[in-house]
C-alpha cells in the first residue's frame, strides 16, 4: 500500500487557483498503484506529467519508483499549479521539476521517443469550446476542467503527440470520462499511431464514469 501523497501544506487559498485532488486524481493513483511492480521493473528514467496541478500524482509516482530512480518533470499552464507541484514534491520527498508550459511544448524536440511514463489527467469536462479556450489562456483553475466539445479539446492536441514522446518501453496513462468516448480514443491511437491500450481502472464516482487508460507500443 503506497500512501496517498501529503498535500496538507497547501491551503484553501491555493485551491482557489489549483485543482484539489478529487475522485479523478484518486482513480489515477489507484491505476498507478496497480501497475507499481511492473513500473519498477521497467526501469523508467523519464517521467513526465502534463497538467500536474497540486503535484499529487507525480509525488505518488516518486513514492513508487524512489526519488533518485527517475527524473520527474511536470508541466502546467497555470503558474500557481507549478508552485504547488514544487511544494508537494518537496513535502513528499520527490524532486519534481515544474515547468510553466502548455502540454509538452518545450520538451517535444529533446524528449522525442524518450518518455518512459507519460501521465495526463486532462480537463475532460464537456463545455463550450470558447470556454475551454478561455480557460487555457486564463491559466487558472478553470483550465483544470473545462474541456470544450466532448471534453476533448485539450486532450485532442496531446493525443497526436503521444507517439512522438513515448520511449520504446513508454507507457501513457490517460484519465477520461464516458462522454470523451473512450473506445474512439483507443481506436484512434491504435489506427493512427499503432499504440495498444488497456483500461486499467474504471468506476462511477460523483456522477462521473471515470476511466484510466494505459497506452503502450
Amino acid at each position: 500500500m503506497i500512501p496517498t501523497p501529503d498535500v496538507s501544506h497547501l491551503t484553501k487559498k491555493d485551491f482557489e487557483h489549483v485543482y484539489e485532488p478529487a475522485e479523478d486524481t484518486f482513480i489515477l493513483l489507484d491505476a498507478l498503484e496497480q501497475d507499481a511492480e511492473s513500473l519498477r521493473l521497467s526501469l523508467p528514467r523519464v517521467c513526465l506529467e502534463i497538467g500536474s496541478g497540486s503535484g499529487c500524482v507525480s509525488s505518488f509516482v516518486g513514492s513508487i519508483l524512489g526519488p533518485s530512480s527517475a527524473l520527474y518533470v511536470a508541466t502546467d499552464i497555470n503558474p500557481h499549479a507549478c508552485h504547488c507541484t514544487k511544494l508537494t514534491g518537496r513535502q513528499n520527498k520527490t524532486p519534481i521539476e515544474p515547468l510553466n508550459a502548455s502540454l509538452a511544448t518545450p520538451l517535444m524536440q529533446r524528449l522525442k521517443h524518450a518518455v518512459d511514463i507519460l501521465i495526463f489527467n486532462p480537463p475532460y469536462v464537456p463545455t463550450y469550446d470558447d470556454e475551454a479556450d478561455g480557460a487555457q489562456q486564463g491559466a487558472d483553475i478553470q483550465g483544470a476542467w473545462a474541456g470544450g466539445k466532448d471534453g476533448m479539446q485539450v486532450t485532442d492536441v496531446l493525443l497526436d503527440q503521444v507517439e512522438n514522446l513515448l520511449s520504446p518501453i513508454g507507457r501513457f496513462y490517460l484519465v477520461a470520462v464516458k462522454q470523451n468516448d473512450v473506445p474512439a480514443i483507443r481506436r484512434r491511437l491504435l489506427d493512427t499511431h499503432g499504440l495498444q491500450s488497456e483500461i486499467v481502472v474504471q468506476r462511477r464516482a460523483g456522477g462521473e464514469h471515470l476511466f484510466v487508460v494505459r497506452f503502450s507500443r
Binding site: E97, M108, Q109
Partner: peptide, 14 residues
C-alpha cells in the same frame, strides 16, 4: 528548481 538535467531537455518553442 531548474537543474541542468532539465535544462538539457528544454528547447525554444516560439
Amino acid at each position: 528548481m531548474v537543474r541542468l538535467i532539465t535544462h538539457n531537455l528544454l528547447a525554444c518553442h516560439v
